[in-house]
Design a protein around this nucleic acid. Structure first.
Lengths: 214, 214
DNA sequence: AGCTGATGTGGACACTGACAACATCACGCT
DNA sequence: AGCGTGATGTTGTCAGTGTCCACATCAGCT
């Protein structure tokens, strides 16, 4: 049936018509783009291009561009959580009080470091936020769950009173989140890294004293 | 020369060819759009449409879409600053220490309130941030300048030691900024207003204790 | 063998930011 | 008085994007 063997050997699809594994590849590609350029860089057609597939192919796996972005956001949140867990586990201190305190500090440092190291992912993580599913701290997972667990350790160690435990999660979260935002996308972008780290320590001091007294 | 008097009486431009006052009108329109839809809503063609002018007219007054957005950002920053100043001036307390403390709290409340009340402007204000021109707190104006002034009042009143004054600005800023972000664009959007205000007070308590001891 | 549903393609449409060529007009110079 | 010149506004165009629709391909079941 071939009119020309040349066309037949050159033209035939080097890739099968059906990719077979497209969805995860699309997500990976989108994550890669998000790391480079943030939320606005996650362009449906560019993702398809890099996946070696036609534009529109993504619509078989995602409702929307927003749906794909949400997937990237979930991945970013998971990455952030893991970064926090890893850093927390590096604390090797016996005394329960100082141990819990230091673990809280590492939580904050990990949060800010992640934002600095992965600005694109950090941005995507908080652009399409479905928010905490419920207001019950116990069942919550993700970065917020990690923070809550560490704060509970402080209460168990007797370093944080139950009264001050109320709202402490939001206070900690807001502080490191704001610090990260101001440095990553905000007006403090140009601050040298050394100074940034130094001031972060003093900010963590403020939170520590505010929660547990001097 | 008119082929038809009807066309001549119907067609003539109701508006003069040159707008005469376009630039400020464009900025106003852009601000209006930003309030409704945030940074992404500031669409050059839509701004021109609402100003009753053709697309591209804006290019005679702004280099870029980014340039127009920067103008909106400046306006938003000025609005935020004014909101803070107004709220600060409502504090009517004699005792210098409690007066300065309360003025600091009002600074934070005003910041968060503005973000809640004008989410679009708040977002634009921090999207295109040129950042503090210099790291010298004295010459700085805008919201950051207001904060620094209030913190200096606390030092003058003897409530805040000079050592703890270092980095206090960033600590305060980060806390309220993070609190605002989490509530305006972030995972805490769905929190009821009453609870939001209540927790903000406890967060401000943490900052107060952290800076000035219990 | 043939059907069917899932998956991928090609083509369109409306929208956007940006550029280039042209139109209009206020103002100053001769 | 006339002219021209630069600022301002317009029209036309291009590439790029998200999304919809019709069609192509193909694996697996009947």
């Amino acid at each position: 049936m071939s009119t020309s063997p040349i066309l037949d050997s050159v033209t035939p699809r080097t890739q099968p018509y059906h990719h077979g594994n497209l969805r995860p590849v699309l997500v990976d590609t989108a994550v890669q783009l998000a790391r480079l350029t943030g939320p606005d860089g996650v362009v449906l057609r560019e993702v398809a291009r890099r996946a070696g597939v036609s534009h529109n192919a993504a619509y078989r796996h995602f409702e929307d561009r927003a749906a794909l972005l949400q997937e990237v956001s979930d991945r970013a949140m998971a990455d952030l959580e893991q970064a926090m867990r890893e850093r927390i586990d590096t604390v090797a201190i016996e005394d329960p009080v100082t141990r819990a305190s230091e673990r809280l500090r590492e939580t904050g440092r990990a949060y800010v470091d992640f934002a600095i190291r992965e600005p694109g992912l950090f941005a995507v993580a908080f652009t399409t936020s479905a928010g905490p599913r419920d207001h019950n701290s116990a069942t919550w997972t993700g970065p917020y769950g990690v923070l809550n667990a560490v704060l509970d350790e402080l209460v168990d160690a007797g370093a944080l009173t139950p009264e001050r435990r109320v709202g402490a999660d939001v206070a900690c979260w807001a502080t490191v989140h704001g610090y990260a935002e101001l440095h990553v996308h905000g007006p403090l972008q140009e601050m040298p890294a050394a100074l940034r780290d130094e001031i972060l320590e003093s900010v963590l001091d403020v939170v520590h004293r505010g929660l547990m007294g001097s």
